[in-house]
């Protein structure tokens, strides 16, 4: 139904006159009573075809309104379901986010344990001390040997190589402490 058809008819459009024969042929006093009675005129109005047509249009409009209200009710039910689903999704999201935050903390701790600069320095320093100790072990080893000329030459060469390694690592360690180095760190 178009909106333009839903219109309150004017009195002229109702075309109440001329009165139908059933009324116009009534005696004058009866017709006068009829005209003075609101209920009777109301009944006459309701019998007019134009008014009936108007009422049909209004009924159609009301049916459409009822249909739309029912659609609204269905929408409300669907909306409730969607709202419940959103609620569950939000709870799931919050829970997952909490877990993810915890895992991130653990990850940070593990990364720190594996690749923290201080721990790497300690590890490097430990390795440096091991190298230093190896040179002392070499001395002990030479002193406990027969100390022949050939052994002496080999010992000097090995000892010098180990000390070179040691001093090289120590120099790096010093520079590292001074933060004058590059590399993995």
């Amino acid at each position: 139904m178009e909106h333009s058809t839903l219109r309150l008819p004017s009195v002229e459009e109702l075309k109440p006159f001329p009165l139908p024969k059933q009324l116009s042929t009534l005696p004058e006093h009866v017709l006068r009573e009829f005209s003075q009675s609101y209920e009777l005129v109301n009944g006459y109005v309701q019998s007019l075809p134009q008014f009936k047509g108007y009422q049909e249009v209004v009924v159609q409009e009301l049916n459409q309104q009822i249909h739309k209200i029912n659609v609204c009710c269905e929408l409300l039910n669907e909306y409730s379901e969607v709202a419940e689903r959103i609620k569950n999704q939000t709870q799931s999201l919050n829970s997952s986010y909490g877990e993810w935050t915890n895992l991130e903390t653990i990850q940070y701790q593990l990364l720190s344990a594996n690749f923290n600069q201080e721990s790497l320095k300690k590890k490097f320093e430990k390795h440096l001390n091991e190298t230093n100790q190896q040179s002392y072990d070499e001395i002990k080893k030479f002193k406990n040997s027969s100390q022949s000329e050939s052994d002496f030459a080999d010992f000097v060469e090995n000892f010098r190589k180990q000390r070179k390694t040691y001093h090289s690592k120590k120099e790096k360690m010093n520079r590292w402490n001074e933060e004058r180095v590059t590399g993995f760190v």
């Binding site: 004017s10 009195v11 109440p16 006159f17 009829f34 005209s35 003075q36 609101y38 005129v41 006459y44």
Partner: peptide, 15 residues
């Protein structure tokens, strides 16, 4: 005419 006007008034009320 009087009847007509009365009917018109009542129709106006109804409308």
């Amino acid at each position: 005419n009087e009847v007509k006007s009365l009917i018109l008034e009542n129709i106006s009320k109804r409308m």
